[in-house]
Design a protein around this nucleic acid. Structure first.
Lengths: 206, 206
DNA sequence: TCCCGCTATATCGACGCGATACATCGCGGC
DNA sequence: GCCGCGATGTATCGCGTCGATATAGCGGGA
């Protein structure tokens, strides 16, 4: 949910609410657009829980531009949400959100999450095909039928895309091993580089 | 929203809540799964508003099988919701729902709705491409980029599908006119054949 | 100077979701 | 014969998100 998105963005750099929304729009605009009605209450809740905190880089005394920063507890919760997190329902339609923060976890975890997603889509595809075939021999108007066909095609396209991601990930894994890299990386991002020098660098509003 | 779905299904035949959910799962399972937590309250609200009514209040004293039926007012509201309805936001991600009831409106209305959807997706695609290009020349990790690319591709696929629907619809229109059919049909389903089983007949993907 | 549009924070009501509870029915196993 | 269990069926609760809206400082252009 929103918490994961906020923590993920704040992990990359400190921001205020308005900016969080803009960044999220850039990253996930295709799939999701957060509303302020969700953002600000959630931000407050996160602050109360101690996973983010207000951060004043200087003279800002007035109530203007509330910059937030992630805490250590927040970092932990972020990884928890990203890699585990309640399965089944909500996690699946927020998969793009997880993917957007993939660089914060190790290759093994990435593959695990990709495979889980793949299994889910395969189930959905099977079910879709079954319903489609049942509908074909029977009534059902043209539009419903076309809708079902399109759904099946879209899911097939998604699966093909997932496969390319998995393939690329496995290649990365082999390369790393072949090159003798010392990064098995349990299930978490490489501990040697938690502050990747340039996660965003160029991002300013304008 | 849910109201449109309920009215549309009840227009086809009287049903009770549980059955509504099942039917909807069949028609739109790929895009949407209604929950009882939405269904029953909405059903009650619709009854209070007088657009649906209980059908078998007779001997049933206990809470068992409450069959609902659409009223004349409901029919009117259904068409209103289907063809007009608050634009911009919610209507767009519920487009499949509209399509599922397309056979209840005339070809001109169908084309109008399809064109509107197309314009929306074209806007989204342009915006997506712009963000993608900006992200390409700059930072952004592999995953975010792949996500954006996939979003663009999916939208292109959706647009292509829409085009086949529009083409087929125009063909139907010409055929009807060429055959001298007496159905200009203002903007509403042909009154002579409200239960036309197959509006276009031949539309299959390949 | 005044107005407009962007930045920025905040709240409200509505609504759909998932979980849960609670009945009834039918059917197959033992 | 009766027992359990899964499918049918209705209903409610809390929560998270949404869209609309309010407010206010800010900078730029006519």
């Amino acid at each position: 949910m929103l918490e994961l998105a906020i923590l993920g963005l704040l992990k990359e750099r400190a921001m205020h609410g308005y900016e969080l929304r803009k960044q999220l729009g850039q990253k996930l605009g295709f799939f999701w657009t957060v509303s302020f009605g969700s953002l600000y209450p959630t931000l407050k809740k996160l602050e109360r829980r101690g996973v983010v905190e207000k951060f004043f880089p200087g003279d800002q005394t007035s109530r203007r531009k509330q910059v937030y920063r992630i805490t250590a507890a927040g970092e932990a919760e972020f990884l928890e949400l990203l890699t585990e997190g309640a399965h089944s329902a909500w996690e699946e339609d927020k998969f793009p959100l997880r993917l957007a923060f993939f660089r914060h976890v190790g290759p093994e975890t990435r593959i695990r999450l990709l495979e889980r997603r793949k299994a889910y889509l395969e189930d959905k595809l099977d079910e879709g095909r079954r319903v489609l075939n049942r509908a074909r021999r029977g009534m059902s108007d043209t539009y419903t039928l076309s809708l079902m066909r399109h759904g099946v095609e879209t899911t097939e396209h998604d699966l093909a895309w997932l496969d390319t991601l998995i393939t690329a990930e496995r290649a990365t894994l082999s390369d790393g091993k072949a090159a003798g890299a010392a990064a098995p990386a349990g299930a978490i991002a490489e501990p040697g580089a938690p502050e990747d020098p340039r996660p965003t660098e160029e991002l300013q509003t304008k």
